[in-house]
């Protein structure tokens, strides 16, 4: 399942102050402590895992705002 993989990556790279298990798919990751530096690690891990390259027009705050928004972008790029 993609969602489990995303959660696993987030746990490893997100450096969140809230455990990923406590987050809903639509919880705000910035409110959970995601910083821009941690976003770099998250992005690189996502690209590696799913063999995608997130284009500039999707590289913005909103893409990494929640587990759901990450899932949407991964799904869009895996097509």
């Amino acid at each position: 399942m993609v969602v489990e993989k995303v959660r696993e990556i987030l746990e490893k790279t997100g450096r969140l102050s809230t455990p990923v298990a406590d987050l809903q798919n639509d919880s705000d990751l910035y409110n959970a402590g995601l910083t821009s530096l941690a976003t770099v690690g998250l992005m690189l891990a996502l690209e590696d895992e799913f063999d995608i390259e997130i284009p500039d027009n999707l590289l913005g705050r909103k893409t990494f705002a929640s587990i759901q928004s990450i899932l949407d972008v991964v799904a869009q790029l895996k097509k």
């Binding site: 821009s36 530096l37 770099v40 690189l44 390259e53 500039d56």
Partner: peptide, 11 residues
């Protein structure tokens, strides 16, 4: 410093 981080996410 901001840009140093953001540039990692710039194509």
């Amino acid at each position: 410093n901001h840009n140093a981080t953001l540039l990692h996410m710039h194509r």
